[in-house]
Design a protein around this nucleic acid. Structure first.
Lengths: 151, 151
DNA sequence: CAGAAAGTTGATAATCTTTCTAATTAAGTG
DNA sequence: CACTTAATTAGAAAGATTATCAACTTTCTG
């Protein structure tokens, strides 16, 4: 269920004096066709496109991901160590949060309507226009608790 | 109000087979002496120490910040673009969250007991040992909403 | 208290991300 | 549809973060 079609993306870009380019349209499509719960790093996206015969430079990819996150189209996730991941920013019934093991980086998604409410109320109270709110829980998973390995 | 004294840090490190070094103790002290609401990047910390005549290498600083975040002593914040910030991870009455403008990076801290409860319940339900939970709200502040500048 | 074992540091290299710049491309105007 | 203006791209360079490794410390053991 695409929230943003190419047309609505173009409209929103133009509203701000920006442009819809083939690269941006392509990147949006990739995220719309992604299975739920999936998320991509900049490199993931780069090589995925290469395999489909599309060449988009890494800098454009990084720039576009950042742009779409600032527009509220994508969410920037800080999951594993060392690199960010991106996913479509979907509204309520699909909106979710992340519980992450800091040792093994295992990640569990969970939903919470109250959090979304607190988030939008807080933004509203301060006069901010809400784009995304995500609760990130850092913790140690059962397996890693039992493990005696240092880390 | 230091939660971790040098002694309790040493105890926790030793429990896992790790060691309390002068560098780690120094870094902990810096964060304990930091005013509430203040947070530091790795570089901030590096130069702050240099000015005090302490030399700790950048790689040790990065390594120590990451380590203390994984222990639950520090929180890793994704505030401004381009680099992470760290602050002491404090319990309830001081525990807070962040509302961030994606345009100008202005940041507002806010507190919420319900979120902390949801976070700890979620972790518990999955058998995870909670270290930190932070709600990050990305939004556009009133000033930037009025601004017509592209960005 | 000497020797072994393991963790830590600092320097460097590697990786990930953002910034900069010239060339290109899309949108607006007549 | 040619022309002007401004945004965008690709590639290179710079900046931020993590990984690697030899030398050094600390802890443990006998």
């Amino acid at each position: 269920m695409p929230i943003y079609t190419a047309a609505s993306l173009k409209a929103e870009l133009n509203e701000k004096g920006w442009r819809l380019t083939p690269q941006r349209e392509t990147i949006l499509q990739v995220f719309q066709n992604l299975a739920e719960g999936k998320h991509l790093s900049a490199e993931d996206l780069y090589y995925m496109l290469q395999n489909e015969g599309e060449h988009i430079s890494l800098s454009t990819i990084y720039r576009t991901l950042k742009l779409m996150a600032r527009m509220g189209i994508l969410r920037e996730l800080e999951l594993a160590e060392g690199h960010k991941h991106y996913e479509l920013n979907q509204p309520y019934p699909y909106h979710h949060h992340h519980l992450i093991c800091v040792r093994c980086n295992k990640m569990i998604e969970f939903k919470s309507e109250p959090i979304l409410k607190i988030g939008s109320k807080t933004a509203q109270k301060e006069g901010y226009h809400l784009l995304d709110c995500q609760l990130t829980i850092h913790a140690v998973c059962p397996t890693c608790q039992r493990s005696l390995l240092p880390a």
